[in-house]
């Protein structure tokens, strides 16, 4: 692989480091200057001295970590030119969650795009992904295996609605991560014609409120946290909560709960079965295999760097298709937000 590009960005234990600009992208531990692609906890951590991110990502970090999460913050508008030293920067939408961005870094005629997590397909809750021509495209590989081909999310939501109609006596408990997935599922339910109140676990409230403030209409949301009168109260209800809550006493208030989980992992039946998921919904905020490979072809970079996920298979695909690629073996970016 070309050492030339490593003058501009190089993997370090803390994260991707830019020597000429002296900053990190999505560092996993506190640093002096951090550029953050999006608000998921494995990319956006608290405790940096200076943070540069989109306004929405900064807002989300403040909601999650408190206003004092960083010494100093600076908002980057999408498409705006920013410079740090003699490094030119530009944020482009990544289509992953609200506020998510790819970061293009240009220096001495080299351009590298760190895409963070991304999803090319339409999502009513965030700005659409935009392919950016570059010399090096840094891609995730969360679903970097050819078995991952996500079906149409709207059709998945229709399966959920069919199940709700079929089981009027049961509460549908949908596991969805609190940033992005939950709001997208709710928005898809509304688009799918479901107008009844949707009950949400307390852990989702702040971010749902924030999405609503940002103009994403999620309809009537009600808390599923307070204990209510009888058990029958939630019969036929649609309830969203973080998957971790499903092992907690919280779920006991629901009648005959039907456990569902909205995640790209749900494509693997054994995974769904092991987690006790009765209704797996294959809804992902990441690019699937076809989208990863199509994106690489569209961006057509000189080199592909693969950060996290199933790097090996994507690197293999690049080799088979005559593209230079290398795995970065970045540690600390887990799939917990899928």
């Amino acid at each position: 692989m070309s050492k030339r590009f490593e003058q501009l960005l190089v993997p370090r234990p803390e994260g991707l480091y830019c020597p000429p600009g002296d900053f990190f992208i999505d560092p996993v531990r506190p640093v002096d200057r951090a550029l953050i692609t999006h608000g998921h906890a494995d990319h956006a951590r608290a405790g940096h001295h200076h943070v540069l991110a989109t306004t929405q990502t900064l807002d989300i970090m403040a909601i999650r970590y408190g206003a004092e999460h960083a010494g100093q913050t600076q908002a980057a508008a999408l498409g705006e030119d920013i410079t740090i030293g003699d490094v030119a920067l530009r944020f482009h939408p990544a289509g992953h969650v609200l506020g998510s961005a790819q970061i293009a870094v240009t220096w001495k005629g080299m351009k590298i795009v760190a895409s963070g997590d991304y999803k090319p397909r339409p999502d009513p809750t965030c700005a659409p992904f935009e392919p950016v021509a570059c010399d090096v495209f840094i891609t995730e590989a969360t679903f970097g295996l050819p078995v991952f081909r996500h079906p149409d999310a709207a059709a998945e939501v229709q399966r959920l609605l069919a199940s709700v109609r079929r089981n009027p006596d049961r509460a549908h408990l949908i596991g969805a991560y609190s940033l992005g997935k939950a709001q997208r599922v709710i928005r898809l339910l509304r688009d799918g014609g479901y107008q009844a109140p949707i009950f949400i676990h307390g852990a989702l409230k702040k971010l749902c409120d924030y999405y609503q403030q940002q103009g994403i209409d999620l309809g009537d949301l009600q808390p599923a946290t307070v204990a209510r009168g009888g058990k029958g109260d939630f019969a036929g209800a649609v309830v969203l909560g973080p998957p971790s809550a499903f092992g907690e006493p919280w779920v006991r208030r629901f009648p005959e709960p039907l456990i569902s989980f909205a995640s790209g992992w749900m494509q693997i039946r054994q995974r769904a079965r092991q987690r006790g998921v009765e209704l797996p919904l294959v809804i992902s905020d990441h690019a699937d295999w076809d989208e990863l490979t199509a994106t690489i072809n569209t961006v057509a970079p000189e080199e592909v760097w693969v950060t996290h996920g199933r790097e090996e298979a994507l690197v293999r695909w690049c080799a088979l298709n005559g593209r230079r690629a290398r795995p970065l073996h970045m540690v600390g970016y887990e799939d917990e937000n899928e």
């Binding site: 295996l145 050819p146 078995v147 054994q270 199933r310 298979a313 293999r316 695909w317």
Partner: peptide
């Protein structure tokens, strides 16, 4: 690619 996938899926 098939081998990597099979390793991952297990079935």
């Amino acid at each position: 690619l098939f081998r990597l996938s099979y390793d991952y899926v297990g079935d």
